[in-house]
Design a protein around this nucleic acid. Structure first.
Length: 839
DNA sequence: GACCTGCTGCGGTTTG
């Protein structure tokens, strides 16, 4: 019997329908491509059955290839590896896959392999490989550190990578690339097929290329990019303050609009409220309860520092509609199986179009349903971002994820992994590694240098035995020292975190995590807030903060040191266009009906900006020079995100310093930056283009920015990933300070004895690419050279500079003083504005 | 190296 004819897409379609997925042509397209032995990438929104079109495709592929084995029995070997970035996804997914398999009458096992897997399960998985393995990138590498792994993966037919857009552009993505090139290198009787699943990003083709790079030689370019092309309707509505004149000009919390979201929560079955930071989500939770005490028990909090078990409970309760609303951070951005909510609210700038889309997509999963998202500005000017987001989505301007190149630290780790299990040989491994997108340009010299880190700790650490981890015998590099092998396994992974302490009730029960530096400034008896609860610090013991319930009225909201996402280049660009539109409205070049509601609402603010200075057009760079009793301010507004502004401020200060000896302090946000000095700043029409020139950029960066200090910090992570710094055994983590100091010690040693080594070079490259966004900085300078630079001399602080100024005040003031000062500043401004109007 | 608004994600001590 030829099963190829009988078992076809119908099986998939029937199953999808039985699970309530509507059939779409992309599912069949994906299935067909798998059937034709192609590799590829599927792009479709969450909730449209893309997972199962690939999964069932893989299963049927097996049936077709082994008609004799079909319906036979167990022990077919590992057929399908399903890589997911989230541990938490395993269980639900595994269960669903098992059901689907049972529906086909197969006796396959679905195994889950991650940090939660017990020793017993692992042993079992080792004895009898499940046919399907759901695994994280880290756990996959741990498998590669096991003896005899090649035979374990021998039968593997298909590797699927879920949420590839999340992994591309990270070192975890590089880990996947390396693992795939290794698996593809194992001699097999079958060709390997590779499939990725990705949400919409700006560079889908490149995403496919990066993932499929190692199998191009198998597929000979035959790969498919399967796009769902579903027209998903998104409705964006801004939450507008009643009187824009009275809404704060600066700030990040937006709590003044709390009353406006109560009716939204009320009328929706379920609502997700996305907040940008963990600390602010705690504040919003309290503010909501204060504004509407009846919501107690009906709302909950969800962020990355809340205990996993509590988070799972919250997710579950939301799905069962036991909760009306959940206040969350990006912790709910991911998760393919996340069931939809009715309404989404975004508080503050999402910083990028892709993120905003992803969040909007959390509502209205069902095909044809409209995703509804509200935007709540945290200060007046931010309202314009809603208009920009609408525009960007309409034009499908979506950010790309840039793949990482030459991550030597990940390579050092990977080679260590191979040295533990089967060992590696110079030439064959070098060629295999060059077969990844990340290391395609790796030279043999660089490879040798990387190996040297394992054999001797590089040039600089030769005399230390601890760094002689790997030895070459009979042409094979191996690690044999049991202690070092164990250490290495403990260190597999690329996520380096700060020291965190668990927070636990003295009576038992974990609540979440808090950063070491935060808790270290509290004393026993002090109260703080976590997971929406008021807690009193009792004592700290064994990396655990013991607490009890607090009744004290006053408690501190913790802050965590998270990442600092800058406004994306794409969103910044659309934003500049929206400012141009605002200028046109002010100049009566367009009618109010021709622009967005947000811009209309902001008209008084723009009018004031225009009156004091100007509202810049798209091809203008605005510079404001203002004198106050604090000194002489220079404000510049490139709208390029805070990282670029930070670098630019330093460069500009350096360049001005070459004209006149002068010192500055800096401040910046996503829209612009400020230089402040106690003497007049010599910037005018005669020199301004030169000051913003991209000539000698690298040299000026090196002279102005403290790049070596920044590189030293980047080097910490690199040293940890590369296994040069030991973080300590689980449960007895070294203090963050120790980690920093041993990494910086290493950095100094390298800088002195071996300054050109690949890891130091990587640290600098990461500073330039990630910390300063050099490419973007250059693009900005080029753009500025083509624009009109407009210098104005406002008599007072303007609405544009206000948020930057307020942020710089924060540094030297308590929040209470700050609040008063801000109030006074705003009053003065309003008076100025209304005074002018009367005339 | 901090706290100034500042996200997310993983891994782990095994031999009777």
């Amino acid at each position: 019997m030829n099963l190829k004819k009988t078992i076809g897409y119908k099986v998939v379609a029937t199953w999808l329908e039985s699970q309530g997925f509507k059939p779409f042509s992309f599912q069949q397209e994906a299935w067909q491509a798998i059937h034709e032995n192609k590799s590829g990438l599927v792009n479709a929104p969450t909730g449209f059955g893309k997972t199962f079109s690939i999964f069932l495709g893989a299963v049927i592929q097996f049936i077709n290839e082994h008609p004799d084995k079909y319906l036979q029995k167990k022990k077919n070997g590992l057929q399908l590896i399903w890589i997911t970035p989230l541990r938490a996804l395993g269980k639900d997914l595994g269960r669903a896959m098992e059901e689907a398999i049972a529906g086909l009458g197969l006796q396959w096992q679905v195994g889950i392999r991650n940090g939660d897997t017990t020793t017993n399960e692992r042993q079992k998985q080792k004895r009898i490989a499940p046919e399907v393995l759901i695994i994280t990138p880290e756990s996959l590498h741990l498998l590669l550190a096991q003896k005899e792994y090649p035979s374990y993966f021998e039968k593997t037919r298909i590797i699927a990578v879920d949420e590839w857009h999340e992994l591309l552009g990270t070192k975890r993505g590089v880990q996947i690339e390396l693992a795939i090139s290794r698996l593809a290198g194992i001699k097999k009787t079958h060709p390997l097929q590779l499939w990725g699943i990705s949400a919409t990003i700006g560079n889908l083709d490149e995403a496919a290329e990066v993932l499929l790079f190692p199998v191009f030689r198998f597929t000979e370019g035959r790969y498919s990019l399967v796009r769902a092309n579903l027209d998903k309707k998104i409705e964006i509505e801004s939450i507008l303050p009643d009187e824009i004149e009275k809404y704060p000009w600066a700030g990040h919390l937006g709590i003044k609009l709390v009353d406006k979201i109560l009716p939204i929560i009320e009328k929706s079955q379920t609502t997700l409220i996305f907040i940008n930071t963990r600390g602010m989500s705690e504040r919003w939770y309290q503010a909501l309860l204060q504004a509407a005490p009846e919501l107690a028990g009906a709302i909950a909090l969800h962020h990355g520092s809340i205990e996993q078990a509590l988070r799972i409970w919250v997710e579950e309760a939301l799905h069962q509609a036991k909760l009306k609303a959940v206040i969350c951070t990006s912790s709910l951005d991911l998760g393919v199986d996340f069931r939809p909510v009715e309404t989404v609210i975004q508080v503050g700038s999402p910083k990028g179009v892709a993120r905003f889309l992803q969040r909007a997509g959390r509502s209205g999963h069902t095909p044809g349903a409209i995703s509804k998202i509200y935007f709540l500005p945290t200060h007046s000017l931010e309202l314009i971002e809603a208009a920009a987001l609408k525009q960007a989505i309409k034009e499908q301007t979506i950010e790309s994820r840039e793949p990482m190149l030459l991550c030597y630290d990940v390579l050092v780790q990977f080679l260590g992994t191979l040295a533990i299990s089967e060992g590696f040989q110079r030439d064959s491994t070098y060629h295999e590694i060059k077969n990844t997108f990340c290391f395609q340009s790796l030279s043999l010299e660089e490879f040798d240098e990387v190996v040297q880190f394992l054999t001797q700790g590089g040039v600089a650490l030769q005399q230390y035995d601890d760094y002689k981890k790997v030895e070459l015998t009979d042409g094979v590099y191996r690690m044999t020292n049991r202690r070092l092998m164990m250490r290495h396994r403990l260190h597999i992974g690329t996520i380096v975190s700060d020291a965190m302490l668990n927070v636990k009730f003295i009576s038992g029960g974990y609540i979440g995590m808090i950063e070491e530096w935060f808790i270290s400034r509290l004393n026993p008896g002090d109260s703080f807030t976590l997971a929406g609860r008021q807690l009193e610090l009792v004592r700290i013991k064994d990396m655990t903060v013991l607490v009890r319930k607090s009744t004290s009225g006053k408690s501190i909201v913790p802050s965590w040191n998270g990442g600092r996402l800058p406004l994306s280049a794409k969103l910044g660009k659309v934003l500049r266009r929206k400012f141009q539109e605002s200028a046109a409205l002010i100049h009566k070049e367009i009618k109010p009906s021709q622009t967005d509601i947000e811009i209309k609402v902001l008209e008084p603010l723009f009018a004031l900006q225009q009156q004091l200075s100007i509202v810049p057009k798209e091809n203008e760079l605005l510079i404001e020079q203002i004198e106050t009793k604090d000194g002489f301010h220079l404000f510049v507004y490139p709208f390029e995100g805070r990282l670029v502004h930070e670098a630019m401020a330093a460069i500009l200060a350096y360049r001005i310093g070459k004209i006149t000896p002068i010192t500055f302090s800096f401040a910046m946000n996503d829209y612009g930056f400020e230089l402040l000095s106690d003497q007049p700043i010599p910037v005018d029409d005669t020199n301004v283009y030169e000051l913003f020139s991209d000539e000698n950029l690298v040299l000026d960066i090196q002279r102005s920015v403290n790049a070596s200090e920044m590189a030293k910090r980047k080097f910490r992570d690199i040293a940890v990933i590369g296994g040069l710094v030991f973080q300590g055994m689980p449960g007895e983590h070294k203090k963050a300070r120790h980690l920093q100091s041993s990494a910086s010690l290493l950095f100094n040693v390298f800088a002195e004895y071996d300054p050109d080594n690949v890891l130091i070079r990587q640290a600098y490259a990461e500073v330039f690419e990630q910390q300063m966004e050099e490419t973007r900085l250059r693009d900005m300078l080029e753009r500025i050279q083509q624009s009109d630079i407009v210098i104005t001399f406002p008599k007072r602080l303007t609405p544009f500079c206000f948020p930057i100024k307020v942020d710089s005040f924060r540094e030297n003031m308590s929040s209470e003083q700050l609040e008063q000062r801000v109030k006074r500043m705003q009053e003065q401004l309003n008076q100025a504005a209304s005074g002018k109007k009367k005339k």
